[in-house]
Amino acid sequence: MDCIKAEELLSEYIEDELSEKLHLEIEEHLEHCPSCNRLCVSLKDIINIGPKLHEEVPFYLKNRLLYIPELIELQKEEPPTNQGLKFIAAMIGTAILLLNVFYFTNIYPEGHSFMHKTMSKIERFAVDTKEYVLQKDSVKNNLLISFLDKNIFADDEKDFISWNGENGEGNG
């Protein structure tokens, strides 16, 4: 038997899983081959040490595993959350934060001046809008007053005149 064949069968030889004939052939080979013999000793060592490499499951992990059923139940009870909306809200928040940074600091000068120009435009728009609304309101109020004058107060005046006339005739 050559070394290559012996190497192939060494594990089975050590574990005594070979036929008697092959077992004897390897034994004979090992007697005459020091390198295969050394390999065989090393293999025996590995096989003996193997079970000692076994590690115990840590206590914390065992606890985590035991609570898996409860964990699954809790997950089932949790209402479904809308991840899309949360994402959009987070993006809006981040954008506002960034715009604030540009507005209040000068880390990016172009952004800073753009923010201030935009803010002054918004303020101008707000002022103009307020003025427009007030103007409109005053026009509306004037129209309303003139409408009331024409219709309601005019009717009242007629009534008053007619009532006064009747009474005046009566008095007279």
């Binding site: 190497e7 192939e8 060494l10 050394r38 090393s42 590995i46």
Partner: peptide
């Protein structure tokens, strides 16, 4: 399985040696 285990052990034995 047998051949894989033998190969693994041989490789390991050679590393150890």
């Amino acid at each position: 399985v047998k051949s894989r285990i033998n190969r693994a052990r041989l490789k390991l034995a050679k590393i150890v040696m």
